[in-house]
């Protein structure tokens, strides 16, 4: 056997190697995505509609759909998650009901997103006859997003010192007011960070969408903003393939001649968008916090 000192050195050396390898993996991944993807990016690529059997299509519609779905999903899920988080933070008693509810939320957060998507398909697309549509997709994304967003908001509320809450109560505020008017504003920076990070997750999600928002992207008329027209970008009842779904779709169908180039470009856009979300989350969170505390 090695003596403990040598053993120590070898072990720590190995750990350096392992950590280095993990960094290398990320660098290789990012490098590959950016090197193969960035050259594809152009104004045309980002705005033109896709072409099924021809080279030279873009991802304009898909990119727009991704953002539209993201915003809708966030608009639906944020108030629900906020309400649920406030209840858990302020009102939930420490009893079996609360434990059960927390377990249910945990189960939802650990469900494979494909199961959430299939449920969305069954319930919204088929049962409620919403068809493959933005709305079905937004609901599926909402379900996918709710548990983590709820937890992140609750955690954010818990970072605020409880003396703030008591300060509010001592002024004769109801608990509801103490949470929504004292704790919540103070927690905004951290809630915002959580929201943006979850937006990144939602933006890249595909499995929950292929059977809800659908896999086709009808051309959009960007001059028509009447949500009741089928080609209007705002129409929530049209099928809407997103960028993430697009990558999956063109790679599994293989009828697009430049599928690889398009996928590389789309992957780069997706990853850059998510990097952007990450930086924005950090930056805005810090800035807001400073605004809140600075003289």
């Amino acid at each position: 056997m090695m003596n403990p000192k040598t053993q120590n050195k070898v072990a720590i050396g190995t750990l350096y190697g392992v950590a280095g390898l993990v960094v290398l993996i990320l660098l290789a991944l990012l490098g590959y995505i950016l090197v193969s993807g960035l050259p594809q990016l152009s104004w045309h690529f980002l705005t033109a509609p896709a072409k099924a059997f021809l080279k030279g299509g873009g991802v304009g519609v898909q990119l727009y759909n991704s953002f539209y779905l993201l915003i809708l999903a966030m608009l639906i899920s944020f108030p629900i998650a906020l309400g649920a988080a406030i209840y858990l933070y302020e009102y939930a008693k420490d009893n079996w009901v609360t434990t059960t509810i927390r377990t249910a939320i945990e189960i939802l957060s650990s469900l494979p997103s494909v199961v959430v998507g299939l449920f969305g398909f069954l319930f919204f697309v088929v049962k409620l006859r919403l068809g493959f549509s933005i709305l079905s997709g937004a609901f599926a994304l909402t379900f996918f997003n709710l548990p983590l967003l709820t937890r992140s908001i609750e955690d954010s509320l818990r970072t605020i010192d409880t003396t703030q809450r008591e300060g509010g109560l001592a002024l004769g505020l109801s608990r509801w007011e103490a949470v929504t008017r004292v704790i919540l504003p103070a927690a905004v920076p951290s809630i915002l960070t959580g929201v943006i990070l979850s937006a990144g997750r939602v933006f890249g999600e595909a499995a929950a969408l292929i059977y809800t928002a659908g896999q086709s992207a009808p051309a959009l008329d960007f001059t028509d903003w009447n949500p009741f027209n089928i080609s209007s970008p705002l129409n929530p009842m049209r099928p809407a393939e997103t960028l993430a779904v697009h990558i999956w779709k063109i790679n599994s169908e293989g009828i697009m001649p430049d599928a690889k180039a398009i996928s590389s470009g789309s992957s780069a856009v997706l990853v850059l968008a998510i990097l952007l979300f990450n930086f924005a989350a950090r930056y805005l969170g810090k800035r807001l916090y400073k605004r809140l505390t600075s003289a």
Binding site: T163, G167, A170, V182, P185, T293
Partner: peptide
């Protein structure tokens, strides 16, 4: 009304 041990001004 009440004032606490640790100053707790609101944010």
């Amino acid at each position: 009304g009440m004032v606490f041990q640790r100053p707790n001004p609101f944010a």
